[in-house]
């Protein structure tokens, strides 16, 4: 849901959230977009607890989501509240997304 009355927005761009394409507007953060898509839980922490944005200003790290800038990019775990949408972003978020870092052997 977005306020429409009296607001002029730029041309929408599209990103993919959990496999579904979404029309979003430049200047919006991922947190805004995920909330407006109806998501309440953004991730599961390492204790398998459901988490959602708390501070909306970059300090609590409760809003981590998985972001790829393009389909074959390496996924990064970014703070949704600090990340602006970009055309073609592929985002994984919600209960199915565990933020536990994948500490594989990279030696």
């Amino acid at each position: 849901m977005r306020v429409e009355k009296g607001i002029n927005r730029p041309q929408p761009i599209s990103i993919t959230v959990n496999g579904v394409s979404q029309q979003v507007y430049p200047g919006e953060t991922l947190a805004t977009v995920l909330f407006s898509a109806g998501l309440q839980c953004f991730n599961q922490n390492r204790f398998e607890q459901r988490r959602a944005p708390l501070c909306n200003m970059g300090t609590c790290f409760e809003c981590l989501v998985s972001v790829k800038r393009s389909d074959n990019d390496r996924p990064q775990r970014l703070r949704a509240c600090m990340t602006d949408v970009e055309e073609g972003m592929v985002v994984e978020a919600g209960e199915g997304f565990s933020i536990t870092p994948p500490l594989g052997d990279r030696s």
Binding site: R77, L103, S107
Partner: peptide, 10 residues
């Protein structure tokens, strides 16, 4: 410790 590269600095 290359694994550090995958982690967020908080």
């Amino acid at each position: 410790l290359p694994a550090v590269r995958d982690l967020n600095l908080i």
